[in-house]
Design a protein around this nucleic acid. Structure first.
Lengths: 212, 212
DNA sequence: TTGTGTGAATCCCTTCACAGCG
DNA sequence: CGCTGTGAAGGGATTCACACAA
């Protein structure tokens, strides 16, 4: 299973799954690669190539079964099982993420929240009590955490991620605006909101010409 | 100025700028492409290639002037001027974004916040009063908004973005977990947090083998 | 006939390697 | 010398085009 699947392919698989789920709700049973691509932002050939990396799921002359394909994608993406997630950092971003419905809906259960602020430790959030970040290693082990979401300040992030990694967690989603360094076997994704804004700013500045 | 610069190049320019700013603070005056790459996650050749798309900023045998290069990058990225940002959606994500220091620090000023919830309209957030989303078009014009941040529920996002675009705004940062469609001349970036988690889930599932 | 699965062609991005300037 | 700037080579990812299965 250690095929080398590109980042963009994975992103597209997620998209396909979303579209399939929409179609599923509407009771549509069969879909062509053309239709699947049309909704998204890619081509029919790309859809077929992406899927062919994992097997042959379509029927020639007919298309794909919405039910089957969405089940397959869920399995491929690991969404056929619940994941246990810990949230480190109970600040504003942390609390927004904690309440983010889309995570729950997709099977990501935030089973513990940690923070280093004594004013927050012990506070109850829903059915989770905020724990002391000093106990990070114990909590990750006790709660059998699969994925850590980092929502700590930038200057603390590298230190925290090292503790997370040495606790054996193999997947980290980083919201701190810092480039983190982790060993190769750990999956790390960055959500860098400022950098996205900067890309927009670049586009605007390029339109206007320099210094406009 | 309408060169076709790839998305990845822009992302790296942002990174370079961050590193340069760190070095600037530490009083370092000159840097080689090697050093600039080492901090990040790319190669010296890549750094030189990226920069060469815009001009010749280095001195052979010496490297790059930290001061000059960071000023240049700021200009290229459009960070040499303030941008006026409107935030649509004053829910949890919206409020986290409103308080996000990194935006302010980089010159993105949130000059207005809008929501459709009557319970929120009129509420004061810092020096901004939440306005009625019904008045979106007027507010965008009055406040001369350059960039809109969308933090509304997924099913409202497409409708809102169409109103935003028809008001003449040319840059949108979307936090709704929905694929939006906008005309080609509008710059759109998505921050899809669930999809990032799904990429992690994929990596874990691939490690464990299917169904583990 | 329709629409998949897939080699081949193409395009784009990254890496190499080195000429040339300070 | 040291390090940039850049053509050329290499490698991935996307697109094309078509044989083939339903």
């Amino acid at each position: 299973m250690a095929r080398k699947i590109s980042e963009s392919t994975i992103r597209r698989l997620s998209l396909y799954l979303r579209f399939l789920e929409e179609f599923e709700e509407r009771g549509i049973e069969t879909l062509s690669s053309e239709e699947l691509a049309g909704r998204g932002s890619t081509t029919a050939a790309q859809v077929r190539k992406d899927l062919s990396l994992f097997g042959s799921f379509g029927k020639r002359g007919l298309g794909y079964s919405v039910q089957e394909l969405s089940a397959t994608l869920r399995r491929l993406l690991g969404l056929d099982r619940p994941w246990r997630v810990a949230l480190v950092g109970a600040g504003r971003i942390g609390s927004a993420l904690f309440a983010y419905d889309d995570f729950r809906r997709r099977g990501f259960r935030i089973v513990s929240v940690l923070d280093s602020d004594p004013g927050k430790i012990g506070t109850q959030w829903g059915d989770v009590r905020i724990q002391d970040e000093a106990r990070l290693e114990q909590v990750l082990a006790e709660e059998k955490v699969d994925i850590v979401i980092l929502a700590v300040p930038g200057d603390a992030a590298q230190h925290v991620v090292e503790r997370v990694v040495s606790s054996g967690v193999r997947a980290v989603l980083n919201f701190a605006p810092t480039k983190l360094h982790v060993p190769g076997q750990v999956a790390l994704r960055d959500v860098n909101m400022s950098m996205e804004l900067e890309a927009l700013s670049f586009a605007l500045a390029a339109d206007d010409g320099p210094g406009a």
